[in-house]
Design a binder for these strands. Structure first.
Lengths: 228, 228
DNA sequence: CAAATAGTGTCTTTGAGACACTATCGT
DNA sequence: ACGATAGTGTCTCAAAGACACTATTTG
């Protein structure tokens, strides 16, 4: 460190350069029983006491953003498996937290519901909220978290159109009707079965197995083909 | 502020919760003389003394991210006009700055070269660097700024495919060959003239004027049609 | 007229969309 | 047989891509 570095640090560390805090907030999405659901925690303290909020944490001084995200996934949802997550947007409005200046880096994580049910067990329904419910009911969500959820939902929708992100919500073999359900929920519109199958046919391969779940033709099981 | 708030703030403000710094870094892009160019400043101090870096600033404690961006645009490029900018990505690796922990929120701004030439005058060529030059020459750029530039270039390329972002690089009337040039540079591939014109025909309207610039048929001037 | 760039017409190919059909199960 | 869901065949239409043509200028 040379002299100009020292100078810089002294100037920067002075009181006039008060620093904002940095947090990560997570959108942990899954598809369960025909709905998109998001993990929310009930706040126990003011501000926004008793309201719902996204799980998050402050970013440690020796911790990257991704590490902070993984820490939240582990602590708040018990997830230590590798799973899909991506950075969404960084929210920096001055008054987004009434207590102090907090800049929030939001992340989107997609988790197969099977995995969440296994991890959360009976408390699954207590922490996973249908997205359409929480964004339509005003006043339920703390801070600017409603805006963040809507932003995230829009992002998944768009990425579903031009990527294979939807597969991240599946764990193990699946049927094409199951896959189509996920696409329809993410895109929020019905799809023609035949066209859908044409489109994803080169992404999947049959396992050879079938599942029979009712008085009708059984459906074949597929797995995701090794990405090209 | 109630008791739990006070408690929170006391805990959080203690030494064990050292805060990272937050900065914004800007990618100020333009198209000039057939090339994509980016504004870079030469560092006068260690670390990375004499190397090139993106313009940026620390985010003030009572300043939103967007306000910090506008401040940089004004101070480093003299731009006070309204122009297109969007948030790109937030870079949070622990060691991205050797002096201290800095989390950088990167932004992408598109500026018509006409505007920059007017503002910067003769120093235009001293601060606007061809993107392909600076990303290919290793060791020219400070910090992780090379990675940020490549990320930004990729983002523009993608958005050019499915948005009308390219128009942000034009100021006032333009010819279709000019517009096509911009698209080809952003997309980094040649386009068929007839197809290109079909695609953008509903976005533009003739001004009635023409420009004659050589021994060949003059080209018509267009303006952007009011967005639908 | 030739050289140069601006601008248009049209054929082919690809893929999205719509819809009708067949297949396989339980009762 | 019938109700229910799985799975397929094929027509239409719009857009992307490729290419050849015409138009207007200067020298």
């Amino acid at each position: 460190m040379d002299n100009s570095d020292k100078e810089f640090l002294e100037t920067y560390s002075s009181e006039s350069f008060e620093k904002p805090s940095v947090a990560v907030d997570l959108l942990i999405f899954t598809i369960h029983e025909g709905q998109m659901k998001v993990l929310l925690v009930k706040r126990t303290k003011s501000p926004f006491k008793d309201m719902l909020a996204l799980p998050g944490t402050f970013v440690g001084i020796r911790e990257s953003l991704d590490e902070a995200v993984k820490r939240v996934l582990k602590v708040k949802a018990g997830i230590s498996d590798e799973l899909y997550f991506e950075q969404l947007f960084t929210w920096g409005d001055v008054d987004r937290d009434p207590r102090m200046r907090i800049i929030a880096v939001s992340y989107l994580a997609l988790v197969p519901d099977k995995m969440l049910v296994k991890l959360l067990g009976g408390s699954f329904d207590e922490v996973m909220y249908p997205v359409s419910d929480v964004v339509s009911a005003a006043g339920k969500l703390a801070f600017d978290h409603r805006k963040i959820i809507e932003y995230g939902r829009e992002r998944i929708k768009n990425k579903t159109e031009y990527t294979n992100i939807a597969f991240e919500l599946l764990d193990g073999p699946f049927t094409l009707p199951q896959l189509q359900d996920i696409y329809e929920i993410l895109l929020d519109r019905p799809l023609y079965k035949a066209n859908f199958r044409k489109k994803i046919s080169n992404l999947v391969e049959e396992t050879g197995e079938q599942v029979l779940e009712g008085a009708h033709r059984p459906s074949k099981l597929y797995r995701r083909k090794n990405d090209l």
